[in-house]
Design a protein around this nucleic acid. Structure first.
Lengths: 194, 194
DNA sequence: AGAAAGTCCGACCGGTCGGTCGTATTGTTG
DNA sequence: CAACAATACGACCGACCGGTCGGACTTTCT
């Protein structure tokens, strides 16, 4: 049920997500939605939470299982690109849409999105720290900076694959991170060949 | 006049840009707007065009004057960050908002945004080619890939500086591109020291 | 069986949206 | 001074927004 809402929100935004359209898509009446959520903002918060679960299920968990350090970082990036390429969400990425929409609109929704972004970058930064500690990455690399790079390079593919040449955009997103990680890796064997 | 529209659109999006609110902000009546633009889509197109002019005036032109190659690439990035840091637009960046909003909404507005994005990345890619030809950058670097990297790393700061720690976000955006260009530069003296 | 609680519905509310229209005002031209 | 185009206006339109409300149906508990 919330999955349909996440799909709609990924294309039209959390605000463009209309109660009437969501109801129509679910085959229920608009007032029926109010049985489960008292108002739109509460529904938006539920949608944000569901999007997080979906991201954890389809990107984070499969990428991290059995991996750590640099291999986990790379798997995270590849899973992310696969999530976009498979068009799991029609709008590409819920978080890109929602963060852009709410980055200058204070309130509970922004607070939740901020916390989730912090958690996501924190995950990557901590994987970087693990990799340094394990001797996989050259010491001296800033975890926060590298997390920013990886996230920005991954995020950039969403609009670019839709507005410009799709295949080239994905190739760039993949190649950029691969180049960056290879440059920092003590043992290049941890990363795929090409 | 269109400047006010660009400002509003940078925060609320091209669709969230309401005729009534724009009229109120300009101190004119809503119907007065229809004297100049037949409908909202025409106004949106005019806003997109005005945003391009503003970007050309405040970022591209000052960055390119008297520079070329790597120095021009770096100046482009620093001008871009300054544009964001100075909060020229209350929403941070018109193009980030508009591209995210219209990347899955076909039509004349999307076509225009696509053309502008192509032009922007094309400019950077061609500067990269110039730099290679001039011997400033190591040969073998892909202009398209590097343009993607520079743009993604610059774009990422917009939402991140608003949702996370502002200063850290700008430092990351600056440091990431500086590191990347320094790694490719034959003569590091072309770039600032830190 | 019957009361209570949960679920969902259609009808409706005030407000805002993009857009139209008739009109008043203004500046220009003969 | 009169005629005319340009400009701006308030009033208004149908559509859609988020949200409310009273009633119908179903399930559960006593």
């Amino acid at each position: 049920m919330l999955d349909a809402a996440v799909e709609l929100a990924s294309t039209d935004g959390l605000d463009g997500l209309t109660l009437a359209r969501l109801a129509g898509r679910l085959g229920v009446s608009k007032s029926g939605l109010f049985t489960h959520w008292p108002d739109k903002e509460t529904l938006q918060l539920a949608v944000v939470e569901r999007a997080r679960e979906q991201w954890a299920e389809r990107v984070v968990r499969p990428a991290l299982e059995g991996r750590d350090g640099v291999r986990a970082l790379w798997a995270l990036h590849e899973r992310r690109l696969a999530f976009y390429a498979d068009e799991v969400l029609p709008g590409g990425c819920f978080f890109v849409t929602a963060q852009t929409e709410f980055d200058d609109r204070p309130g509970p929704v922004q607070d939740r999105l901020r916390a989730q972004l912090r958690e996501w970058e924190g995950l990557m930064a901590s994987l970087v720290r693990d990799a340094i500690r394990a001797g996989e990455l050259r010491p001296g690399v800033s975890p926060g900076l590298l997390a920013y790079e990886l996230d920005a390079l991954g995020q950039g593919v969403v609009t670019r694959s839709r507005l410009l040449e799709r295949d080239a955009a994905f190739a760039h997103a993949r190649g950029a991170v691969l180049l960056r990680l290879r440059g920092l890796c003590v043992d290049p064997g941890l990363l795929p060949g090409s």
